[in-house]
Design a protein around this nucleic acid. Structure first.
Length: 457
RNA sequence: GUGGGAGUAGCUCAACUGGUAGAGCAUCGGACUGUGGCUCCGACGGUUGCGGGUUCAAUUCCCGUCUCCCACCCCA
């Protein structure tokens, strides 16, 4: 039996109703903040992620689905029919870093990658279509992303993100701490709106690149003498990415980590002021937050404000969304200066955290039509068409069904009413309409059916 | 990528130290030819994840592999 590939899954009813409920609520919230939807390709040039997300990040270094495009010749038809020459798909794992990734783009077959996140794609589109000239600087997206990680609860190889970006020239206000606060307040509204309580907003600032360099230096100095006493992971981090030492959960390491310098001590004046203003606005709009100067986001492009919303009951993957400011990203991708801030919600995790049950958001049929006897399918179809025009949810059976079977079907579907369409009814021009919950049954003339069904509860 | 646990009917789970698989629910049919949710009877449904090994005999023991779950790594 062919099964869904590792780390992917089918979303089935009634769960899909819950997903649609979430997405509808989210679109509502975005509208109120004047965000507009953008849809970018599901795959992009590998180079975009290498430059945008950072070649040293785990995502780019070992978690991308990457393949080499073959231009116009073979496409996928031959290998699939004959199974003789399967398409070559590999992760970047087998490649040498940087040099090869950029070389591939220059050959005949360009290197392509399933998007592991959506910010790079949005910024690429912003640059490509000169969106700053159209006043489009508040964008949101909803869609699948792909990472080749080991699956576990709340983590899939195809997962869904709901995200938004504020991006634009500084003159448009995109650099303002007001945007940071607006984004955070939007998120608080959004979570409340979909019915998630008990979230925690953790807030930090990682400063400008200059601050980070200085801080990294100080961190290395502080770690140098103590690194040998730390866990194996930390020893590796000290070399590759000292910031990540703060993520360590090994108890023995905590006393050492407590004494390390903090990024907050290295923020320059503009960054410090920016961060203070973000906090001041949050207090003014009464969005609760906790400062966490150990919160360091993984992607290279973050600077200044970084944040995370967490929620219990998600296991180890307790971050329901994360984001931050990325003022240098546009330039890193060859675009104009365009400060920005954004976030990505893990939709899979968001749905998992919902108190709402899938059943409760499914719209059940208002009426089930039971045709009874030869020729009654025709009558039933006409009635169904008419009732559906009145915005009623209608389902129906078949004239060969015994009445009992129709009743059982109506019960199973959770219909509110059953409408019996038999010869007697057609002759009389009035139909037996029975409320399934109470058993109350009335005879209703054709013309009054729609009104009768929609009115009652 | 690393470590641990688990895969038996559509779903939830049984099957003692190896003896060729069973229940509940669900589905379909009947009791009940135009009136359901209850009850009773019956039927359908499994290459016990897949492949190999040990054995007279494997759901059970061993090896490999795939998938899921938990944790690490990392992240949404």
């Amino acid at each position: 039996m062919i099964k869904a590939p590792r780390g992917t899954r089918d979303l089935l009813p009634p769960d899909t109703a819950l997903w649609n409920f979430v997405e509808a609520a989210v679109r509502d919230v975005f509208r109120a903040y004047n965000f507009h939807e953008i849809r970018t390709p599901i795959f992009e040039s590998t180079e975009l992620f290498a430059r945008g997300v950072g070649e040293e990040t785990d995502i780019v270094a070992k978690e991308m689905f990457t393949w080499e495009d073959r231009g116009r010749q073979t496409e996928l038809i031959a290998p699939i029919r004959g199974l003789s020459a399967p398409p070559r798909i590999s992760t970047v794992e087998g490649l040498q870093p940087s040099s090869e990734i950029s070389q591939i783009g220059e050959g005949k077959g360009q290197s392509l990658t399933l998007r592991p996140e959506n910010t790079a794609g949005v910024v690429r589109a912003y640059i490509e279509h000169k969106l700053w000239d159209r006043g489009l600087n508040k964008l949101f997206y909803i869609g699948p992303q792909f990472r080749r990680e080991r699956p576990q609860k709340g983590r899939y190889r195809q997962f869904y993100q709901i995200g938004a970006e504020v991006i634009g020239p500084a003159t448009a206000g995109s650099e303002s701490p007001a945007r940071d606060a607006e984004i955070l307040e939007l998120l608080a509204t959004l979570l409340d709106r979909v019915g998630i309580s008990n979230w925690t907003l953790e807030l930090n600032s990682v400063g400008c690149p200059a601050d980070r360099a200085e801080f990294n230096e100080a961190l290395r100095k502080a770690l140098d003498p103590v690194a040998a006493k730390m866990c194996a992971d930390c020893q590796r981090r000290v070399v590759t990415n000292p910031l990540r030492v703060f993520d360590c959960k090994v108890p023995e390491d905590q006393p050492i980590i407590e004494k390390l310098p903090r990024i907050s001590q290295f923020l320059d004046e503009p960054c410090r002021v920016h961060f203070e203003q973000v906090q001041a606005i949050l207090k003014s709009v009464e969005v609760p937050f906790v400062l966490n100067d150990r919160l360091v986001r993984g992607l290279d492009y973050y600077q200044k404000t970084t944040f995370e919303f967490t929620h219990g009951a998600l296991g180890a993957q307790n971050a329901i969304l994360g984001g931050g400011r990325y003022d240098g990203l546009s330039e890193a991708l060859g675009g104009p200066a365009a400060p920005g801030i954004g976030f990505a919600i893990g939709e899979d995790r968001l749905v998992m955290s919902l108190a709402e049950s899938a059943e409760s958001v499914v719209r059940k049929p208002d009426v089930y039509i039971a045709p009874l006897g030869t020729g009654m399918n025709r009558e039933a179809a006409r009635l169904a068409r008419e009732l559906r025009r009145h915005d009623l949810v209608v389902d129906l059976g078949d004239e060969s069904f015994r009445l009992k079977k129709s009743f059982e079907a109506a019960d199973r579907l959770g219909a509110r009413y059953i409408l019996i369409v038999g010869e007697n009814e057609v002759k009389a021009g009035a139909f037996a309409l029975k409320k399934l919950a109470s058993g109350e049954q009335v005879t209703v003339p054709r013309g009054e059916l729609a009104q009768r069904i929609s009115r009652a509860t």
